[in-house]
Design a protein around this nucleic acid. Structure first.
Lengths: 97, 97
DNA sequence: GATATATTTAGATAATTAGCTAAATATAAA
DNA sequence: TTTATATTTAGCTAATTATCTAAATATATC
């Protein structure tokens, strides 16, 4: 959980997760969205992997990253929960309040 | 919002916020819950103030810190929102799905 | 006014971090 | 089997961070 918050503390890494929300992408595709070098992006991917926020699957010469939504959700949920906030895990747009 | 996530990346600071969830406390009272020195705690308080997650009111020779719940909530809400997660701001325990 | 209490500021250090270029690895294609 | 592509690893640097002790500030009490 600490690793998750550490991972989320960098805006580039948060943006990577946002890019992955709609589906998996390769390291290269992700890198194309940022101004920093590939090795720098690779280091960010490593932090995200270490926090278990993404998984990486190699196919051919590229590596496809996928968001581990449940890990992100659990971290936000358990932290928010301490403050009496609840996270609704419904992906649906139109639910309660 | 970046400052909020930066502030949340440290476990001591997250713990401070948790201590404040039930009500305001002075710098000294908060510090008593941790093993680190007062100046170190003071620096953590400064980061939390800078992120606008707490406010500080001086009365007499102590300083009372109070959690700015709405700021914490807004940050979690807007980030979680990107991923289709919803945070329920009801303090109530027993609400919906 | 002197002393005690609460907190911050100053100044230092060690560890971590985000960034870079260059090189290594692995796979695919020519 | 050479060359091109995708990604990571190695090695470096500058900036930031968490921590400390000592000193400063501000307020209260004696």
């Amino acid at each position: 959980m600490n690793k998750v918050f550490k991972a989320l503390s960098d805006p580039t890494r948060r943006h990577v997760l946002e890019l992955l929300r709609t589906g998996p992408m390769t390291a290269g595709e992700l890198s194309d969205h940022f101004e920093v070098s590939k090795p720098t992006m690779s280091a960010h991917f490593a932090v995200l992997r270490e926090a278990d926020l993404v998984d990486a699957v190699k196919s051919g010469r590229s590596i496809t990253y996928r968001l581990k939504m449940s890990v992100l959700e659990d971290a936000l949920l358990s932290f928010a929960g301490v403050f009496g906030l609840k996270i609704d895990s419904n992906n649906k747009e139109g639910s309660s309040s």
